[in-house]
Nucleic acid binder design. Sequence first.
DNA 1: ACCCAGACTTAGGAGGTGGAAT
DNA 2: ATTCCACCTCCTAAGTCTGGGT
Length: 735
Amino acid sequence: MRLSMLKNTPTPKTTNTGMEIGTSTRIASRNTRTRIVSAAGVRNTATMTTRTLLTANTRVTLTKKNTERTRLRRRSLPHIKKEPFDTHSFAPKVVHEDAIKKAPVKRPKDDSDDEPFSSKLEMMKKVKLEKPHEKPLEKKAKKRKAEDDKKPRIKEEPTDKKKKKKEEPEQKWKWWEEERYTDGIKWKVLEHKGPVFAPAYEPLPDNVRFYYDGKVRKLSKSAEEVATFFGKMLDHEYTTKDVFRKNFFKEWRKEMSHEERSVMTNLSKCNFNEINEYFKTKSEERKNMSKEEKLKIRQENESIVKTYGFCLMDGHREKIGNFKIEPPGLFRGRGDHPKQGMLKRRVRPEDVIINCSKGSNIPQPPTGHRWKEIRHDNKVTWLCSWTENIQGQVKYIMLNATSRIKGEKDWQKYEMARNLKGVVDKIRSQYREDWKSKEMRIRQRAVALYFIDKLALRAGNEKEEGETADTVGCCSLRVEHIKLHPELDGQEFMVEFDFLGKDSIRYYNKVSVEKRVFKNLQLFMENKQSGDDLFDRLNTAILNKHLQELMDGLTAKVFRTYNASVTLQQQLKELTNPDDNLAAKILSYNRANRAVAILCNHQRAAPKTFEKSMANLQTKIDAKREQVLLTRREVKSAKADYKVRRDEKFRKIVENKRKTLERLEEQLMKLEVQATDKEENKQIALGTSKLNYLDPRISVAWCKKWIVPMEKVYNKTQRDKFAWAIDMADDDYEF
DNA sequence: ACCCAGACTTAGGAGGTGGAAT
DNA sequence: ATTCCACCTCCTAAGTCTGGGT
């Protein structure tokens, strides 16, 4: 049937931006194996996209001649003062009409500026109650709400299979129907129980021994704890890496007693095997616990979540995202991280700052301890913070994605991207103009923006050398990261990108660009060494400053959101066939999702069991196919019988056989779709784009339009996170 | 004018879990 | 009942961007 068609669907052609793209190939060096995967999906292109993916279990290190690196990581560039919006607006503030219509309601910024704080609060309260300036969106929402109110409220919670009896009885708060704070205040009341600390160190039992140079050695408590961090990781590749071992050993020695330090001078002489075994056994034991024990542990966890996992914010009980403080351990930086293996110190209450509202119940520190500080800052969203010792970064405890505070922000993000939709054509024609500018900095800015727009590259902030892995984004690209080919694979003006991006994920792509871009790149690279910055007159601050002038609130990352969402919408439009059955529709959805993941370079390591489970699936398919064939023959013969003996009994038999065949064929088709989907998805991570880049209202609308159950597209967590969109978007929603 | 800390979003992997397959 | 595997949740690193201080 249509399966063969599905399997080889040529890449959809789309032309929303009117830009051409060549072959896009990405390589993530992983294992030693190379596979070729063709995936459905590209955007902005009339060419077929073929992807080549090499996988690996580890992140890649591009060979780089550090010695050649002449560039200065920190440049001082002329700073352009930030102008208030309007004065330089490139795009007259024609915000897309649709966007205005649907934009979240915002109170004018300064409408109560001279009010004293307290009366502002009063007003805010009133606003929340009265909703004075209602906009279309709100009306719509309100209307829906009114309808809802007629129905019994309980219907909200589709009794999630009787298994989980204690589903939250409280009805969900529709924060999206309320007014928002606009003056930088994030909350008025905040109360919580503080963080949960990592469990104290439990010394090893005496039968678990550590050996140095072949001899048993009892370690001091602090040295032992750090040794267990390493011992636990023995099976991990990290422990074989030089940098990791070197950093670890250096830090471990600091925790050793004087004597230990003088004796243990060589990590290679340390034997952690028994420690490693011990933890393996322990986790095995945990797995083999009886039902009762497991239940008990679960209940304990649940009770912790109940007290520490929620906070009270502005009268609503909200879920906290990460209420546990990170336990001590060895730092696992990604890629070629210079600090990998360093000791991540245990966080004590004395390191923790508590943020809550004045007059609320301040969380109790563990007995015998005190907090570093109690703060009442309602201009920020975090509840607790501490400074981590590896990079000196502040870490936070914040709310879950389902919370009002995160949800509003998320919604706002998509509205910003929709605003961009209204001005993107103008921005595009401007940067094309700028390719011809007399000024180098403007040309660089324009070419960089072109890459960000066309290839969905990240902005690329500067990073401090030696502190982190060497990764880049658009503005921080170096000459060594691109190759220019006047002609390649039969196409003109090809640029070959090869660099490590965020998380040291390799970005490899060959793109045909416009001639002007190509010429500009040649110019930018003139007289430069491979380690020099490609855009030496540009950084993210300059770029974002420029974008700010083109559209209020516009920054580089908005392009990623915009292009991702637009691509999804378009691909869904193109790939969805109304006559398809449910499975095929979902495949189309996944393919649309996949096109975005490819665009954004969201990769994953191929699952360890991939080959095997693929083979299993194939076996099933073969068996099913066999069955189909068999049944087909049976139908035939039954028909023949009926022809000869025209009686009711035989007619029934034919009927039954035919039904069986139909069922089997459908099952087969389902399996085949599944296999296709799986194969195409081998090294592509769909989750990241789904969670962070795709306007959920597009997916919601698609589900509603094609009567696809929402659960097929969003799991429970995702449905919770996108509750606002599910409630809000109708089947005709347009991004 | 510039730097940097701080705040918040985005990211992939580890490991747990629960339901399907045997 | 046991095993297997897919999916989900948790975890925390690594980005982006803002804004305050000097």
